[in-house]
């Protein structure tokens, strides 16, 4: 799936609907953290109320998402655009194999 990437004052932003059955579980959270760690950029995930460091699985898990919620990935740094495209592919893969 293609997601829109927008330039904001805080960096590049990508809004993603999360359609996993019960928010982010351990396995998808681990996959996202692994992917985020591949990039130099500072990457944050903005939930409804909290913000998580995308490189920390523990942080992602504490982002208490609800099913069908939407979150925004915010990346700042040299490779911000590559990071967001990489994460988009990764998210598609984990959402499809969620089970």
């Amino acid at each position: 799936m293609e997601y829109d990437i927008k330039q904001t004052p805080d960096g590049l932003a990508m809004s993603v609907p999360l359609s996993m059955r019960s928010g982010l579980h351990a396995r998808p959270a681990a996959k996202i953290a692994q992917e985020a760690q591949r990039y130099e950029s500072d990457i944050r995930i903005l939930g409804a109320e909290e913000t998580a460091d995308a490189k920390s699985m523990l942080d992602i898990l504490t982002l208490d998402t609800t099913p069908d919620a939407s979150v925004t990935f915010l990346a700042q740094g040299e490779d911000a655009r590559q990071a967001l495209s990489g994460l988009a592919v990764c998210l598609d893969a984990v959402q499809q194999s969620d089970g």
Binding site: R27, A29, A30, A33, Q37, D53, S56, M57, L58
Partner: peptide, 16 residues
């Protein structure tokens, strides 16, 4: 494998 993979990710979690 996924259970173990997730534990490994925790073991090197940068924030933790």
């Amino acid at each position: 494998r996924d259970v173990i993979g997730a534990q490994m990710e925790l073991a090197r979690d940068p924030k933790l």
